[in-house]
Amino acid sequence: MVNDKSIFTINDFSIYYGNFKAVNNIKLPIEANKITAIIGPSGCGKTTLLRSLNRMNDLITTSRVEGQVLFQGVDIYHKDTDVIELRRRVGMVFQKPNPFPSSVYENVAYGPKLKGIKKKSQLDEIVENALVRADLWKEVRDKLNESGLSLSGGQMQRLCIARSLAQEPEVILFDEPTSALDPISTANIENLLQQLQKTVTIIIVTHNMQQAARISEYTAFMYLGEMIEFGETDTIFVNPHNKLTEEYITGRFG
């Protein structure tokens, strides 16, 4: 199962909230430097699965997992795994843009400062670099000291992406990153994701099938906590093997 290209390998993985099994026995390889989309109707466990990949679901005290998630061959749920380091290397961008109520600069510099980088020149460089990569530098170069909350919705979301990029992560998890945005901002973010995949592996949960079809290389379809079908996006959308997948994609439910 583990091949050289896989950055994440999910093996027989289940997640419980109390007694409720939110994600059931999933097998899924994630290829490095590609965009993988996870689609499915609301409540199918796709966000839960995504949040388990950098152990954000640890924050929900009743959650419990079974099985394995290998990140570059390392079991991230092993008791010796350093969660902090994992989250630095597997970043996350959320559904609703959530910049901190501080300046644009401070938002991006937050992660590097946590790592102990204090030198102003070095921080400046990291911030600029991250903002350039997030395609936001041109828009905010003059207002680095303004509040991150003063930006438009699309800019805020790119700020959150920049904040994540400043950590130099290998993977960024996107949890429906455009669901709160207008179509133009959505298009900007989609372009950005395609640029980013050269350097970062991207896993995106989306409710929007066209979005998955437009940007992703691989698509996984989940239904009621089960992984129904996984494959190259073209195959899934043009020639799905599973009846459920076909019904979902042709819009018969969901």
Binding site: L70, F71, Q72, G73, V74, D75, I76, H78, D80, T81, D82, I84, E85, L86, R89
Partner: peptide, 19 residues
């Protein structure tokens, strides 16, 4: 199994304890 593998990884993801 994962522990032995991880030693060869470029980053230290696994530490005995984060002090």
């Amino acid at each position: 199994m994962q522990d032995t593998e991880s030693i060869h990884k470029p980053f230290m993801l696994v530490r005995k304890k984060r002090f």
